[in-house]
């Protein structure tokens, strides 16, 4: 019988330390620079240009015409970073976060700019509009 040519390699490796990362006992393997992790959205910077809606291949964005912002569900995101590249105001960026497991696909952490925030902004805009109109009337008098 012929001996396997792997035997010397196996014997040599038996004497070595295991080369594994014992997650979760250890820190995970560090991410490189420009790693594409969970998407971060800054509502205040967004000007509602809809570029991200056009470019996203995964249907993450919904445009909200009343407030001229977008709402995101990153549960669908494929981490391609195209929205980050196209956003003219840097309202979108990719973070280092990659431990994103969840029991609920509509988990808070997957949704940016939630219902309540949208309602709040709507009210705020309405008030601003009224204030402007009032100011105009006062001017005309």
């Amino acid at each position: 019988m012929r001996l396997s040519p792997l035997i010397p390699t196996v014997l040599r490796n038996l004497a070595k330390k295991p080369a594994t990362n014992l997650f979760p006992k250890m820190e995970p393997v560090p991410v490189p620079e420009n790693f594409r992790g969970r998407l971060i959205y800054d509502v205040d910077k967004c000007v509602g240009c809809r570029m991200c809606v056009t470019v996203c291949p995964a249907g993450v964005f919904v445009y909200l015409p009343e407030v001229r912002k977008v709402t995101l569900w990153t549960g669908r995101c494929v981490f391609c970073s195209q929205c980050v590249d196209v956003c003219p105001t840097n309202a979108l960026k990719m973070s280092d976060e990659f431990l994103l497991a969840s029991y609920d696909k509509y988990d808070e952490k997957f949704i940016w700019f939630k219902e309540e925030e949208i309602e709040e902004l709507k009210k705020k805009l309405e008030e601003q509009k009224k204030a402007k109109e009032a100011a105009k009337k006062a001017e005309n008098k």
Binding site: G59, V62, W73, G75, E115
Partner: peptide, 13 residues
């Protein structure tokens, strides 16, 4: 079919 965006599923628009 489309699995739907939570904003629409909650009756958003």
């Amino acid at each position: 079919h489309n699995a739907g965006h939570p904003y629409y599923l909650k009756g958003g628009a």
